[in-house]
Design a protein around this nucleic acid. Structure first.
Lengths: 218, 218
DNA sequence: TGTACATCAGTGAACGCGCGTTCACTGATGTAC
DNA sequence: TGTACATCAGTGAACGCGCGTTCACTGATGTAC
């Protein structure tokens, strides 16, 4: 899961590496963009970008699939960072909703290549890629669900189906965030506001449905 | 926009075509699947599937991009069909929500290759592809918005932001529907129920927010 | 310290492959008379 | 009806290209003594 490569080995004999695993990953990241997914990368292209001979990549990765896994893991780390940031912001005056959306948009700006990987490979990658992305999203949903439940307890509001609510928010934010990669940056603020409103709708809806369920249940 | 090819020309002189434009499109569709996007299709591969020589494709399409556009247009037609079906179902006892979700899932089952194109190319295609998909989705959202507004008038419930509500529903249903392509069919029913619940949340939320706005506005 | 040696990161050349595209062609069809 | 001709869908061969992968290699480094 972690992106830390096993660079330090038992007996580092032989020639010293002039290029590291991370250098190759960085080169691959530079090539990715809104219109390029992992599967469009060629070994020779990555090598060219990294400034090494094509077959030198084999010294660091068994094949391009292994490089892809490393990229997805890295993207997963970036995604996890969002919820950490969101929590830190939520302690301030803004609610968790605003905090989460802000954290997401900021990550998107800073780490766009990494989130782009998740957005893209979640829909079009190999089955293995999709599964990896799905796992990262499920992790995120679980965290968000706990936060939502905590919030509902504190504010004494109902929560219709915490898991489903978390899933709806995650998927919607993720999808809408994906469109941010394709629009000019000066429209990001507007998009951000839209996302916040959408999440508010879902929260208000889950509370309304919970209240309705309680009422009819009694 | 239409997928009808100009097969009937002014003076159809010369040898009769043994293969049609639609045959080639059908061959391309056969090659697409959950793990294959339009951009992964090769001209030779499509030709092989269609049973013709590679360069024969040039008789029907300027290049593969033109074939891709035809595929996307076809997918757009399929998407539009959803809202038509949803409306027909909505007149019966089920609400428009259930109707829309049902129509979507049914389309997904019947036309999975076509919806797959929209789901995939919306995220990973060229800018032109993404724009084409975005246009289809916007069209869908506009229709849904009108339906929502009509519904709100009839039931005399509020509607916080019809456009945004329609967008949230569309994007969420679309994204969740996309995951259906990757899971076994016996789980489709469960997914369908989840989607319906999510949409209900959004609707309940938009009504709750509208009520709140009215109250605080007075 | 010096020397012989093992390790191994990176290299350059070569391979076979599928690709998009081109070219001149073939031969079935419709038209003109 | 018959014949000569124009049209043009589909073809087979060939091209140059970038690809992944292999191979034997080079030479810098660390280790053993």
């Amino acid at each position: 899961m972690s992106s830390t490569p096993p660079t330090v080995e038992a007996s580092p004999q032989g020639r010293k590496p002039v290029i590291s695993r991370d250098d190759i990953i960085a080169a691959a990241l530079k090539l990715l963009g809104p219109n390029r997914g992992i599967s469009t990368l060629s070994l020779r292209e990555v090598a060219r970008e990294a400034g090494i001979a094509p077959n030198s990549i084999y010294r660091h990765f068994r094949d391009l699939d292994e490089l892809a896994v490393a990229l997805i893991d890295l993207a997963g780390d970036s995604l996890r960072q969002i919820i950490v940031e969101a929590r830190q912001r939520a302690t301030a005056e803004h609610g968790v909703v605003q905090g989460c959306a802000d954290a997401f948009m900021e990550r998107l700006r800073a780490d766009d290549r990494l989130l782009n990987i998740l957005l893209r490979e979640g829909k079009v990658g190999s089955t293995a890629f999709k599964d990896a992305v799905e796992r990262q999203l499920n992790f995120f949903e679980e965290e968000l669900k706990l936060d939502l439940m905590y919030l509902a307890t504190v504010k004494n509001t109902g929560l219709y189906d915490p898991g489903l609510t978390a899933k709806a928010i995650t998927r919607l934010v993720f999808t809408m965030g994906g469109t941010a990669l394709d629009i000019p940056k000066d429209k990001h603020d507007e998009l951000s506001k839209q996302i916040v409103q959408m999440v508010r709708m879902i929260i208000a809806g889950t509370q309304a449905l919970a209240a309705f369920k309680t009422k009819s249940g009694l």
